[in-house]
């Protein structure tokens, strides 16, 4: 009986902590957005720094993962299509899968692992070494100073990186289509463009697939930056606390990406 009570108590405590953290993350996101008009220009230097950290540093990884994801997709799906005599349709599938789903998700996963974890560690270290308290003593809002530039940077860079990853994935798919499936590049490109142009809906100049992917990327950028910064700000208890903050940030980002990703797809394609 005692152990059941203890288990329930632990679970209840964990649930309360999760709700508390979610509320905190939403709170700092709202504060960051509210500070944006007044502080964006004043903090332009920090925003530019973060654009580099969030956009240029992870670019090689996104490029390589994008290229090879396209190649794997082409290989796996292409073999099945070739058996059905439909190898030339490979680019239709690659375009839709990459732009709509895989590109944004894959990019957000890479950014979580590389940039989000670094954000949680950096801010977490500041929190446990009283640097956040020091900022408050200088009447500097830590959300405006630390969180807002990171949120802005990831919101801008996630869709751009995702687009680059998708384009490289299509190129990788094209290489496999030519070398393994004997699909001519001209046919591959024509089918790819046709599949994107023939979307049932257009959003301005963008086909639905690309538009959906970009919306997802922006939302993913918001999620990764907010969750990671919130975990860092909540860090306490020295080096162990920083490690816990990084783990919390990565796990929560992964969970939220998959859950929110589903609901965005549902909203667009139900």
């Amino acid at each position: 009986m005692g152990s059941l009570t203890e288990t329930l108590e632990r679970q209840g405590h964990a649930l309360r902590e999760t709700i508390d953290h979610a509320g905190f993350a939403v709170g700092i996101f709202v504060r960051a957005v509210r500070r944006l008009p007044a502080d964006a220009f004043h903090r332009r230097r920090f925003i530019l720094d973060q654009l580099y950290v969030c956009g240029i540093s992870p670019l090689p990884v996104v490029a390589i993962v994008g290229l090879f994801t396209g190649m794997i997709l082409a290989l796996q799906v292409g073999i099945e299509l070739a058996d059905l005599g439909q190898a030339e349709s490979i680019s239709n599938m690659i375009g839709v899968i990459l732009f709509r789903e895989m590109g944004p998700f894959m990019t957000a996963m890479i950014l979580t692992a590389s940039v989000g974890s670094a954000m949680a560690a950096e801010i977490g270290t500041m929190a446990v070494s009283e640097e956040i308290d020091a900022l408050e003593c200088l009447s500097i809002d830590p959300v405006s100073f630390l969180v807002m530039p990171r949120v802005v940077a990831l919101c801008i860079m996630t869709p751009l990186l995702s687009f680059v990853g998708c384009v490289l994935g299509c190129i990788g798919g094209g290489i496999v289509a030519k070398t393994q499936l004997s699909v001519q590049p001209s046919i591959y490109v024509r089918n790819l463009l046709t599949s994107l142009e023939s979307s049932p809906q257009q959003f301005g100049p963008l086909p639905e697939e690309i538009f959906t992917g970009l919306v997802k990327s922006v939302v993913f950028g918001l999620l990764v930056s907010t969750i990671s910064c919130a975990a860092g700000l909540k860090a306490e208890g020295g080096a162990i606390g920083v490690g816990r903050a990084v783990r919390t940030a990565v796990v929560r980002c992964f969970l939220m990406l998959i859950i929110i990703g589903y609901y965005i797809s549902w909203a667009f394609f139900r």
Binding site: D49, M126, S129, E130, E131, D133, A134, C137, L138, S139
Partner: peptide, 17 residues
Amino acid sequence: IRRQVAYLFQTGALVNW
């Protein structure tokens, strides 16, 4: 109040970047 009363932290708490 924080303009009138400044706080020198144990570690210095400088912004590292």
